[in-house]
């Protein structure tokens, strides 16, 4: 039995555990389907989300699978196109937060410089409630895309940094890091060649998580009216739906983005949970 577990490196054990767990597979399938819908749907849908069709307030049908809103906009197209505004900002935030978190994690974990400062800061940030903070700051300053992306980066960087630091500390103990030093490798090279490949998969896991979290948060912001409600986005669909759907009796108006967002949240939860699971007991069972 030991023959099996011993022959795999840590990151391989992690990725294997991640890929083979049913939870992560389910999560990835959900997220991938959503991604497919958004990417391919954009090319296929016949209606522009801004186009006013002659069928306002119509329930889901073959022509309009998600129905139309009070102005006759096809809701399916709205949902598909609506992902993009949030998507670009979310992508920026996800990459930014993971990059920041990853490098500060490696820095504080390996070089142990600024370790006190970095872990203190991450502790502080982790205690902040994300949504209220964003709303507060977005309300105080003008809520441009860049500002929101920046805010999310600053808030979501902390958990990444924490996880990466922990992993780096454990990799640092490995004998082949000593061997690398004995073989003449300088610190930077060791970090690049040995540490980062072992810690890399975590970054990928967190990118997915942070991307999905960002989309959800941005949608929430849009729903609350931050940003331009005339640009079609998931949040803005809900914004308008909240105002007019009930009086118009269009129950499907809320359903469309609701289902999509719920699916996103579920996919996110599944992937996030399996990343956590893969990080802990599997690696300890080396």
């Amino acid at each position: 039995m030991s023959l099996i577990t011993q022959s795999l490196s840590r990151s391989k054990v992690f990725s294997d555990a991640l890929l083979s767990s049913k939870t992560s597979q389910a999560g990835v399938i959900i997220l991938a389907s959503l991604a497919l819908l958004i990417l391919v749907g954009r090319l296929l849908t016949p209606y522009s989300p801004y186009a006013v069709t002659p069928n306002p307030n119509s329930p889901p049908s073959l022509v309009h699978p998600f129905g139309t809103d009070f102005q006759g906009h096809d809701l399916l197209s709205q949902v598909i196109y609506g992902a993009y505004p949030s998507l670009s900002v979310a992508l920026l935030a996800a990459i930014g937060s993971v990059a920041l978190g990853f490098f500060s994690g490696v820095f504080s974990g390996y070089f142990r410089k600024l370790e006190g400062g970095i872990s203190g800061t991450t502790d502080a940030v982790l205690t902040l409630p994300i949504l209220p903070t964003i709303i507060l700051i977005a309300a105080l300053f003008e809520a441009s895309d860049l500002l929101v992306a920046g805010l999310l980066t600053l808030l979501l960087w902390a958990p990444v940094a924490r996880a990466v630091t922990a992993q780096v500390l454990s990799v640092k103990q490995l004998t082949y890091v000593d061997v690398a030093r004995l073989s003449g490798m300088k610190d930077l090279r060791i970090v690049w060649r040995v540490i980062i490949p072992e810690v890399g998969p975590i970054a990928i896991g967190y990118t997915i998580i942070n991307l999905a979290i960002s989309i959800v948060l941005i949608t929430a912001l849009e729903f609350l009216g931050v940003g331009d409600p005339n640009v079609v986005s998931w949040g803005s669909i809900l914004y308008w739906a909240q105002q007019f759907a009930f009086t118009a009796g269009d129950w499907w108006w809320v359903l469309a983005p609701g289902i999509i967002i719920a699916l996103l949240a579920v996919g996110l939860a599944l992937v996030g949970y399996s990343v956590e699971e893969a990080l802990n007991p599997r690696l300890r069972r080396r």
Binding site: Q6, S7, L8, S9, K12, L174, T175, Y176, D178, V179, A180, L182, V194, P197
Partner: peptide
């Protein structure tokens, strides 16, 4: 120097 654990002494990649 050489170390005790042959598995951990060699970089797996």
């Amino acid at each position: 120097m050489i170390f005790q654990d042959p598995f951990e002494s060699l970089s797996p990649r």
